[in-house]
Structures are given as C-alpha cells and as structure tokens.
C-alpha cells in the first residue's frame, strides 16, 4: 500500500485517505498561447516509467494539496513537499539523482 507523509499535518497517510491529482508542475498556458501549447498543457503527459512528480490531496485528513516524488515502477517514495512551489526542491532533486543513476531530470 502506498504511504505518503503529508507535509502539512505530518500524518503518515495511506492511499485510502489520499486523492491522487496527476502530474505536478504543469505550466498553465496563457491567453497568448497557441492551440498546440494549450492542448499539450491539458492532455499530454510525461507518464514516465520511473521518477514521477505528482499532486496529491490529503482528502480524508487535513484536506491540503501537496506534491510527492515517487517511482512508478518500485513505488518508492523519494519525498513529499508543499504545493506552493513551481518546481521541486533542489535538495530532493539531488537526493533522487544520487539514488537513480542516469535519471534525466524532472522536466
């Protein structure tokens, strides 16, 4: 069972009290954006076999949205962090790079 630490209330929550929110750090396309860019923002996903950054909500807990970095093959959780950021924390990226040799980065 997938277990994530909620970075807000600190509770170790299993997946039955969490709601998945899909890929994280998508950049919203503004009014000047092209159709292709808007399509990409809405639908195209990285869907990696490996390190994945994603959004979760502690739905049956504190109700807050947060981010998690997780491996989609091993289900190893590299860490969780608050939602009020536009990219993953540097320390977490460094830790993942160390653990996953040849990782191509979060973008």
């Amino acid at each position: 069972m997938l277990i994530l630490d909620c970075p807000y209330c600190g509770i170790r929550a299993d997946e039955t009290e969490l709601a998945p929110g899909g890929e994280a750090h998508l950049t919203r396309v503004g009014p000047e954006g092209s159709d292709a860019a808007f399509e990409s923002y809405l639908f195209d996903r990285k869907n990696p076999k490996g390190v994945h950054f994603e959004r979760w909500r502690h739905a049956a807990g504190c109700g807050k949205w947060f981010h998690a970095a997780r491996n989609t093959v091993t289900l190893e959780v590299y860490g969780t962090y608050p939602a009020q950021v536009t990219e993953p924390p540097k320390a977490l990226l460094a830790a993942i790079s160390k653990k996953v040799p040849g990782w191509e980065g979060w973008q």
Partner: peptide, 13 residues
Amino acid sequence: DGFNNYTQRGSFH
C-alpha cells in the same frame, strides 16, 4: 489505481 504506476500488481484496497 488512481495514480500512475507500472507495477503490474495494483493496490490491495
């Protein structure tokens, strides 16, 4: 499962 994964087993619940 509600979340991306490639595990070929799925969650118990």
